[in-house]
Each structure stands twice: as structure tokens, then as C-alpha cells.
Design a protein around this nucleic acid. Sequence first.
DNA 1: CATTTGACATACCGACCAGTATGTACGTTA
DNA 2: TAACGTACATACTGGTCGGTATGTCAAATG
Lengths: 226, 226
Amino acid sequence: MSNGHEKKTRLRDPERTRKRLLQAAFREVHRSGFQNAGINTILEATNVTKGALYHHFDSKEALGYAVVDEIVTKIVRDGWLSPLLGSGQPIDILIGIVRRISVRPDDIRTGCPLLNLATEMSPVDEQFRKRLERIFLAWQEGVAALLRRGQSEGTVRCDLNPEESASFLVAMVEGYASLAKNAQDAQVWEVGIRNIVGWLRSLRAPRQSPKGGRPMSKKHVVRRAR
Amino acid sequence: MSNGHEKKTRLRDPERTRKRLLQAAFREVHRSGFQNAGINTILEATNVTKGALYHHFDSKEALGYAVVDEIVTKIVRDGWLSPLLGSGQPIDILIGIVRRISVRPDDIRTGCPLLNLATEMSPVDEQFRKRLERIFLAWQEGVAALLRRGQSEGTVRCDLNPEESASFLVAMVEGYASLAKNAQDAQVWEVGIRNIVGWLRSLRAPRQSPKGGRPMSKKHVVRRAR
DNA sequence: CATTTGACATACCGACCAGTATGTACGTTA
DNA sequence: TAACGTACATACTGGTCGGTATGTCAAATG
């Protein structure tokens, strides 16, 4: 009579309730920051009661940690880590990813959730900090791995340090996102994208001219070592 | 009998009281963010009473605005705008400024006050946003003006857009500051500095070799226009 | 000297907030 | 069907918050 997943999922669907709470919590935290996020706001947005929320999460902190672990992590995975694994020339992949970052006014307005949380919580709550750091490191490592692949394939300059170039990229993306958020202006972001893309192009290995090209030695490329 | 500025400044020195409130408010806001900053914390830090505070400032917001206008503005002026006006080669000046940015653990930990406030308040309070934007724009314009000077003197590549290069620099500085703050690690910041300095060096005009140097055309330099 | 005004001090208020105590109803299991 | 644990719902608490009403006292002003 009752197959596993009926639409009787109206009442008593704990997994669904939990996910809805997480989503609403993410939105509220993204809007107001974690410390300023209101439990009641989340409850009103979901039509869930306080008892239900505290049944699923031990505390506001636990809810916040779950938002980082499950929602923010997924956003970075979908937006960066997964695309990084695609086939094609590494630099082209990176340019494609950067260009595909949302320019919707509301996303410009509220900014990068990872950066927002890190800015607010890293100095204050070590558990938050560690979780966010793991995401940042995974992001950088993913980019670095792709650059290394490009180096071994000969499409990326071999005189650069993949890890440092990766963090350079992350810093630029977050820096421009901050400027655009403050200006509340998508154009600021678009200018940033153009400059980031220009920098990414400079990472390409110089064309192997048949007669033996010169090394083009002096340009800025985040070199290896000190 | 009473020269203007005696040391009787113990009781009833409204200007001093005001400045002390502003300083304490800045510290508290820097630590906790504006919305989470506690009025009582500021009062305890200054041994000033609530009545005194609300005599000098109409509201918490007014206090916050004053902090931005008087303290944060001064920090950027002292750290960037004034040094930008010095004599010497523009790129050397910029490198000197960037290198002189604090690496004290506590400053890494709490991050850039301008960026913190912008991240927290820009989407939420237009008055805050505008004040912070003015500071960002003054910062960028100061750098751009210096780059233009360098171009006219021939020490800075003339094929770059000064405004875009300036915002590129600001974005990188703030981006790395964010990464270092999340990592709570001054080394992250120092690596960032090295890379920023490397990029700054790439903005120098190529040496005018006596026989007519080649233009070194392909490196990334935030070019003019689109 | 009398009065007023600026610079505080104290006590208090209502709103809001995270968290909890307690109750209830569904659904599975024995 | 009886019992029990999960999944909620409601009402409440203690504490903190920004803000205010009111009072005091010193110094300038007439």
C-alpha cells in the first residue's frame, strides 16, 4: 500500500524539513551574517516551529556549521571543483569558470557567501574558521592541480608556481567580488572579470615558434620559489 | 589666568571624550562588526556613561558613521593617500606602501577594517555603503593618479589603463587580506605581498634599450579599453 | 550673583533573542 | 493493540540590547 516515497510527504518528512531549514538558514545567514541571523526569521520562512528546528539542530552554531558543510561546500563544488575536472586546456577551463560566475544584481549585492562568512566568523569562532579554511584550500588545490596538468601538457608556463598562482586567482576573485559588493554595481564585477581573464591568458605557455622562441622572461607570472 | 589648553582636561573635556568614544567604538566595531558591536562594551572600555555617549552621538548608527568618516578615512589616508604623494618612481612608491602594510598577527586576525565594514554593511545600510565607497574610490583614484604620473614620466608602461590597474591592485590587496584573515596566518599575507610586488614590477615601462628595445607586447598589464 | 546651557550620570524600558520545558500526535515495532 | 520513540508544536524564560527620561553639576553668560 505504501511505496517508499509517496507524496504523503506533507506531514512527517524529517529529511525534507531538515533540508528546508538548511536552505532557509543559508539565505538568512547570507543576507544578515551568522551572528545577526535570526532563528525566528528562518522559522517564518519555512513555516517550521522552533521545537522542530531544535529537534534537528542542537544549537544555532550547529545549524551554521551544517550550512557551511552542506550548502556552502556544495556551491564551491558545483561552481569550481567540478568544472575544474573537465577536459580541455586548463586556461580555457579557468576562463570559462570565471566568466560563468553570476552577475545577477542580487548576487553582486549580497556577495560571496564563503567570503562573507569567513570575514565575519574566522576571528571569532574557530570551528567556523576551520570549516571555511578547508573549503578555501580545496578550491586553491583544485586550481593548482589543473595548472600542474597544464604545465605537464605544455599549455601552461612552467616557470610559475601552481599553488601561488591558484591563491592569486582566488584572492583576485574575492577581492573584486568585495569591490563590486560595496559598489553594488555589476559593472565593477565585469571589469574585474576582464582583468582576471587577461591575467589568466598571461599564464599560457608561449607559443613554441618553430625556430625556437625566446623565453619572454620578464613578465609577471607568480614565479616559483622566492 | 587660564590659557586655552590646560591640563585641567580631566573633567569636562568634551572633545577628548568624543575622541575616546570614537577610538573605542572603532576597536569594538573592528572586532565584532557594527551590528554586533555592543554599546555597553564601548562604554566599559572608556569609562564613559551612556548618557555621555548619547549626548555626543544621536544613535548607534551616527556613531558608526563618525567612525567611518573620522577613523577609517584617516587610516587609509595615512597608509595610502599620503604616501602616494611622495616623490620617487611611482612603482617604487607602491611597492614601498604594500610592503609597509602591517603583518602583526592581531591585524591579520581582525583584517582590514574598511573591507570588514563594507562586507557587513554595504548590502544593509546605504549610508554606510556610500561613505565606504567614497573611501575606496579615493584610494583607487590616488593610485591611478600616481600611475598616470609614471606614464607621463616614462617609468610606467603606457599601454595600461591606470584606473583599472588601480582597482586591480586594491582588489588584490583586499583579496589576500581576506585569505590571510581566514587562515589566521601572516605567512599567507606575506606570500600575497610577494606576488603583488611581482605584479607591480611588471607595470614598469620596458627599459629603453639604446638600439630600440622590443615592446615586450604580450604580458598581462591590465590594458586600456576593451 | 542668578540663570542658563552644555556635559555628563543613573535608572529604567520595551523589544528581541536564543534556548527550553512541556505537551502532543504520528508511525513503527512488539 | 499496546507501547514507545521520533517528529514536531506552544508557551515561556532569562538575558541582552539600543534607547530614553530624568537628574546633577560645572562653567559660561548676563
